[in-house]
Computed example of a mutant assay.
Amino acid sequence: MPRVAPARLAAALLGALALAGCNLLPAAGPYSAELRNPRTQDADGVGYKLVPVTANVVRVLAQEEAEGLIGTFRNDRKPIPDVKIGIGDVVSVTLFEASSGGLFIPEEAASRDGNFVTLPDQQVDSSGDISVPYAGQVKAAGLRPEQVQNAIVAHLNNRAIEPQAVVTVKDQRSSTVTVLGEVGTPVKFPLTSSGERVLDAISRAGATPSKDYDMFVTLQRGGRDATISFRRLVREPANNIYLQPNDTLYIYARARTYLAFGASGKQGQFAFNDDTVSLSEAIGQAEGLNDGQADPQSVFLFRLEGRETLRRMGVDVSDTTEERVPTIYTVNYREPTGFLLTTKLPMHNKDVVYAANAGSVEITKFLNLVLLGATTAESMAHTDTYLYGPN
């Protein structure tokens, strides 16, 4: 058997180690230098955005989080719904005349109580009209009852004796709100002119959240939608807005979680324990940063962020048309402001927090491998001496 030169073997091991560089060393994730290197950011075609956490970034994210229902629907013209007659509604029409002998009150009916007649209930037809004797087809859809009353009187003025009309909606089928999801009884109910708010609708459906911070309410209106936690809806009366015709409320429960990797005290999946959790609270729940391992200047938050949100931060998003952009926020906990800023940075469901190792940790790993190579070479040298004798 040929003898192996221990010195040559040790040199080969060290050479291989040097050529492999950091990639040969064990690690829980990417090195901070790789994340910050623009040449490696799009190596796999992901095209993520690297965003340092600043006061402006936190302001934009906090503002987006605070919008809620009132933020999305603040431009709606009227807070209390303007309930109008619609196609399919059932209405009742009562006609009055000043004296008997007119179109609706015959002479022989003069002794009865009141000079009026109530027409049979009728449904607003597909053209939006109702039918009134001697007035013909009268437009009703899109109008308030008093407007329909005035239209009927205008049609009858030259024929009846000082006519008056009262229009009443008996069954409102067009201006309704629907409540679906995890509720006691899904319900569809008509709005009234006094106005119903979001919590009024939820109480009608019998929603009974077990963990109100995991219960969410989505309001869909006119092609737009907004979601808010049940706890926040109760806590912030401004978000308990008036409902509008054809609104849909969807109530659902969702256990939100985030992941923590790298040099944090604990790694794994963690559940939100409140309706809002900040990045600093999330790191605290993962038992903070490992004092003997973490680089406090290299804490990263991974998320798919909204394109418009990034644009408001001043991030260049002209190179992508995606609505959700892969984003890595970087935090420097070496600076006191890092702690202050992240108390206001809200976490999202499925976020990933990653704390990179300090450079000294990587040096230690490298030296340990060097020591292992040297020890292996020395052991082989002793083995050679035992088998073949000294040179």
Rank of each mutant, 00 (worst) to 15 (best):
Y213K: 08
Y213P: 14
D214E: 10
D214A: 11
M215D: 11
F216W: 13
F216V: 01
F216R: 00
F216G: 01
F216C: 11
V217H: 10
V217I: 10
V217Q: 11
V217N: 03
T218K: 04
T218R: 12
T218Q: 10
L219T: 05
L219P: 00
R221Y: 12
R221W: 11
G222V: 01
G222T: 10
G223T: 00
R224Y: 14
R224V: 01
R224N: 13
D225Y: 14
D225T: 02
A226Q: 07
A226V: 05
A226N: 06
T227S: 14
T227K: 13
T227M: 13
I228D: 02
I228C: 11
S229P: 07
F230D: 08
F230Y: 15
R231H: 12
R231T: 14
R231M: 12
L233E: 13
L233F: 07
V234A: 13
V234H: 15
V234D: 12
V234M: 14
V234T: 14
R235Q: 07
R235I: 01
E236Q: 15
E236G: 15
E236Y: 08
P237A: 10
N239K: 02
N239P: 03
N239G: 06
N240Q: 05
N240G: 08
N240C: 06
N240E: 10
N240H: 06
I241F: 06
Y242M: 09
Q244P: 13
P245T: 04
P245M: 07
N246Q: 15
N246V: 05
T248H: 15
Y250H: 15
Y250Q: 14
I251H: 00
I251D: 03
I251V: 13
I251N: 00
I251C: 09
A253V: 03
A253T: 09
A253C: 07
A253I: 02
R254A: 10
R254S: 12
A255M: 07
R256V: 01
R256P: 03
R256K: 06
T257G: 09
T257L: 02
T257P: 00
Y258Q: 02
L259T: 09
L259Y: 14
L259E: 11
A260L: 01
A260N: 02
G262F: 05
A263Y: 05
A263D: 03
G265V: 01
G265T: 06
K266Q: 15
K266C: 06
Q267A: 09
G268W: 00
G268N: 05
Q269W: 04
F270Q: 07
A271Q: 15
A271E: 15
A271N: 13
